[in-house]
């Protein structure tokens, strides 16, 4: 494997939901609870899980929108969590974010040309007279025409707006782009276009992606390795092919069985999970998934499994594979 670009170590993010009279937290939401993983240079690491499992929180911690409660984020060996705010901001040139909702992520009072030029201007990446040219180039890269640069975001469709969002992220020439469900707000025909565009740009700009999605089918298209999250914890990490053909964790198996297939011979038994996702405010002791797991056995509700390498490159956090 190539060198590690980002390493996340025991990352935690707790949100205080309630405080007592003296300001002491009485109820804490564990959005991300002890998550560790690595992303290698040039790969696309997919992160999947249901709504509210903490995947977006991880993405936002990487771009400094949230401050981790504890844990480390190592970017090319530098611990980002230990830096002063001023130094931390300098890393925005290396890590960028593509937002989920292209309708909300563009300032309605700026033209798209200004939106794309802004990151170049405020980071002083280019002399003034070259910015224009660079914006033209970026617009071309994402498949927008140069004559559209003086228009406002509301004049564009969802797919076009997402292209503007991608161009803005590319403007600072980042090394890592966190794609926070970049296609889930788009309709299906546009999803494929945007995914292909992201795939192409990855090679062109030598990018690394953390690709967050709530469905395995989108991640399958673009990722090299996939991590599966449930209720703030990583359940399984494996290379894409391995994960799709040999899912180890019962939760992953259930997720995969939920992907619709048009091939009748490949239709598998659908695993229907009973119950709802427990509240992350008071997560179950032991394994987070045990209350809905169809393979749980004696002790799962008391003893939490740790993420361990079951076969080379394939990690799972399940007591079925602890020994």
């Amino acid at each position: 494997m190539s060198e590690v670009l980002v390493e996340v170590r025991n990352l935690r993010k707790y949100f205080t939901v309630e405080r007592d009279f003296f300001g002491r937290p009485t109820s804490v939401l564990k959005a991300v609870d002890d998550v560790s993983f690595q992303i290698h240079k040039g790969e696309a690491f997919g992160l999947v899980g249901e709504s509210g499992c903490g995947k977006t929180t991880i993405g936002k911690m990487l771009v400094d929108l949230y401050t981790p409660t504890s844990g480390k984020i190592l970017f090319e060996g530098t611990d980002l969590t230990a830096l002063s705010p001023e130094k931390r901001r300098a890393f925005c040139k290396s890590i960028q974010l593509i937002f989920q909702d292209p309708y909300a992520s563009l300032n309605p009072r700026m033209t798209i040309g200004d939106i794309i030029a802004e990151p170049i201007k405020i980071n002083h990446l280019l002399p003034k007279d070259q910015i224009e040219k660079r914006v033209t180039y970026l617009l071309n890269c994402v498949g927008l025409a140069n004559h559209q640069r003086n228009r406002y975001p509301h004049e564009f469709s969802g797919g076009q707006r997402q292209r503007v969002g991608i161009a803005r992220a590319l403007a600072v020439e980042p090394k890592l782009i966190v794609c926070d469900e970049p296609v889930s707000a788009l309709d299906v025909s546009i999803q494929a276009q945007v995914l292909n565009l992201l795939d192409e740009l990855k090679d062109e700009f030598g990018l690394t992606y953390l690709f967050i999605a709530h469905g395995l089918n989108v991640v399958k298209h673009i990722s090299d390795r996939v991590g599966v999250m449930y209720l703030g914890k990583l359940m399984e990490i494996a290379p894409k092919q391995e994960l799709y053909h040999n899912p180890l964790h019962p939760y992953t198996q259930a997720l995969l069985s939920a992907i619709p297939s048009i091939d009748p011979t490949r239709r598998k038994q659908r695993i229907i999970l009973s119950g709802d996702v427990p509240s992350p405010i008071n997560p179950p002791d032991g394994c987070r998934f045990c209350s809905r797991c169809f393979k749980s056995f004696e002790g799962c509700d008391r003893e939490g499994p740790v993420l361990r390498e079951v076969s080379p490159g394939h990690f799972a956090a399940c007591r079925l594979f602890q020994k």
Partner: peptide, 14 residues
């Protein structure tokens, strides 16, 4: 809390 304000932070605005 709008995404575009968060986006402004992500690209390094003061």
């Amino acid at each position: 809390e709008n995404d575009y304000v968060q986006a402004a932070r992500v690209i390094g605005n003061r």
